[in-house]
């Protein structure tokens, strides 16, 4: 009883929130420090861009993991961090794009244009980021209230977005399938779990209707 009270103490909840908020900034701090101390070798531009993109993916996958973890393992405590993790995914995806634009192509318009028209992996990546923006904007409680049922529908866009991100990774393969295997199987599990739940619910509903 005492433990439960302690676990739900506002101070602890606030501390948790801040810890996660700061922890999610660590990758950015780390790579900035590495760049600042010239520890990234001959091609820091690519190192930074790849690293930020990777973290965008980890966080997006993290935000998708929360529902299955809550439902399957009862980790209800994670639920209130979902928005922050999702917003961080958008944040890292944006820094990933900024790093690409600044460090790799130096904002040369002609290079940006060929990248966005010819490089398929860049097209799907840019599309994923573009679609993430309305989700970020409507992530507040106010928008949730205003959009009502449509809010859930809108935020289900995260499923096609995650598939676009996976495609972005697939089309970046040079030799090794390891990344795609790892991220693909995790995503398959997280999306498969949702489909399975939905099917079960439908089966249960039809069973109760027929009885």
């Amino acid at each position: 009883m005492v433990l439960k009270q302690l676990k739900n103490h506002p101070a602890l909840r606030l501390l948790e929130w801040w810890l996660l908020f700061l922890a999610a900034l660590l990758p950015l701090a780390w790579i900035s420090w590495q760049a600042w101390s010239f520890a990234l070798g001959a091609d820091p531009a690519k190192e930074i861009t790849d690293y930020l993109g990777q973290w965008a993916l980890y966080l997006l996958w993290g935000s998708l993991a929360i529902t299955p973890l809550r439902q399957a393992l009862g980790w209800t405590r994670l639920q209130r961090f979902r928005r922050m993790i999702g917003l961080y995914a958008l944040f890292y995806a944006t820094t990933h794009l900024l790093a690409f634009g600044t460090f790799i192509i130096g904002w040369r318009w002609d290079l940006l244009q060929t990248a966005l028209t010819e490089r398929t992996y860049i097209i799907v990546g840019a599309l994923a980021l573009l679609l993430l923006i309305p989700l970020g904007v409507t992530s507040t409680k106010g928008w949730q209230r205003r959009l009502k049922k449509r809010w859930t529908q809108l935020h289900q866009l995260v499923y096609p977005i995650s598939l676009l991100v996976l495609l972005h990774v697939v089309w970046l393969i040079r030799d090794s399938y390891f990344d795609v295997f790892l991220y693909g199987s995790l995503l398959g599990w997280m999306l498969g779990y949702r489909v399975w739940r939905r099917l079960q619910r439908r089966l249960r509903r039809s069973a109760s209707l027929s009885s």
């Binding site: 760049a35 070798g41 001959a42 091609d43 820091p44 531009a45 930074i48 600044t102 460090f103 790799i104 192509i105 130096g106 040369r108 290079l111 060929t114 990248a115 010819e118 490089r119 992996y121 089309w171 970046l172 040079r174």
Partner: peptide, 19 residues
């Protein structure tokens, strides 16, 4: 995956990429 029209000469500085 790569346009071959330009290249980045390494080592390259971050804010003035050597394109």
């Amino acid at each position: 995956r790569w346009s071959q029209a330009t290249e980045r000469r390494l080592p390259s500085s971050l804010f003035r990429p050597n394109i």
